[in-house]
Amino acid sequence: MHEYGIAESILAAVEGRADGRRVRRARVQVGALLRVAEPSINDAWSLVTEGTLAEGARLDLVTLPVRLTCRDCGNATTSVDPYAVCPACGTTDVDTEGGDDLVLESIQLAEATHVPGDPRGDRGNPVGSS
């Protein structure tokens, strides 16, 4: 299950961006050639995030297509199927470009209940005191 290693890489990037804050959601672009199975990556994500700031966070995947160029007929197309054949002539003799990306697109942080220095939410600094 290569998804475990991918989940560890995603977690490292998430923790770097979260800077010690709890994470609710991470959105990741994953290339079709990485052949990431969503149920497997979700299981791996649950395992690797146990005890971390991302524990319980949702992982959203966006599959990026691979560009295919047929060596026989020259047809160019894109596909999210890593085993795609040329749609024009049916051959499997295709060149691929891209589709191996793994990009942390965004993270959603949990809302803080106490923000130091925020006069609207800082109970430790009553209004009017210095």
Rank of each mutant, 00 (worst) to 15 (best):
V36C: 02
D72P: 01
T69R: 06
Q108V: 14
D118S: 12
D101T: 11
H114M: 05
V115K: 12
N42C: 10
D72L: 09
T77S: 12
S79G: 07
G74A: 09
T52R: 06
E111T: 13
P116I: 07
L47Q: 14
A37K: 05
E38C: 12
L47P: 00
V30D: 00
A18K: 00
T113A: 14
L104I: 06
E111H: 07
V28E: 02
G117K: 08
I41R: 04
S129D: 11
L33I: 06
E105D: 13
V23Q: 00
A84Y: 01
R71S: 02
A13D: 13
R71P: 00
P116Q: 11
E3F: 09
P126Q: 08
H2L: 10
S106H: 06
I10F: 01
A44F: 05
V62M: 04
V115G: 12
Y83C: 04
H114P: 02
L34D: 02
D81H: 02
T96S: 13
L34Y: 10
Q29V: 11
L11A: 10
T49M: 03
L59Y: 04
V66E: 03
S130Q: 08
A84W: 00
L34K: 13
D19F: 03
G74S: 06
W45S: 07
R35I: 01
E8Q: 14
A18L: 07
Q108S: 15
T78K: 04
G51E: 14
G117L: 05
A7H: 05
P39Y: 07
